[in-house]
Amino acid sequence: MQKYIRTTLKLELQDKPGQLLTAIKPISESGANIITISHQRDEENPGSDLIVDIVISLQESALPKLLDSLKAQNIDVTRIGIERLMCMKTFILIGHILHTDLTDTVNRIDKKDITEVTELHIIMPKLDEPSTAKLTIKAVNEAEMDHAIEKLEKIAAEKHLMIIDEIGGRL
């Protein structure tokens, strides 16, 4: 399965007409999906370089070629941030979440750089009463997400936790 990544490119463009288009062309040709573009002109130093942030999602294998083509156009890429965990699902858990070893619950789902619990928010109304938690899991792809959900379901059955998940696969 091809791995998709989300990445932010910070480009330095000369402040003259046509530069943005020159930068976007190779991105578009790489098959990437442009999620957002923002640019800021330095009003105090007219004529200085233009900094453009472009967030794209593309197949990981297509990234090196894209960076080469940008370089070939004399465009400086000053920073690349990569978000590998593209799949995200939110769950609500109800039960004795803390008293059933929360660290264990999270550790069993976490698989470094593949599936990670990225958000956990717990409300405990009263001692001895069930608590409620919102848990966000991110994964590199759907298959890994399915693995993580299977694990979560197993943990929930063991620890008598109720899971509420999103309706998936809707059109």
């Binding site: 609500i92 109800i94 109304p125 069930p130 409620t132 109720m162 309706i167």
Partner: peptide, 23 residues
């Protein structure tokens, strides 16, 4: 019967709510 008011409030923070769904 196990659903807590907190669960519904938490769902709301991401624009969701909870319903009993037959799928």
């Amino acid at each position: 019967d196990r659903i807590t008011p907190e669960a519904i409030k938490m769902a709301h923070t991401t624009g969701h709510t909870i319903r009993l769904i037959a799928s």
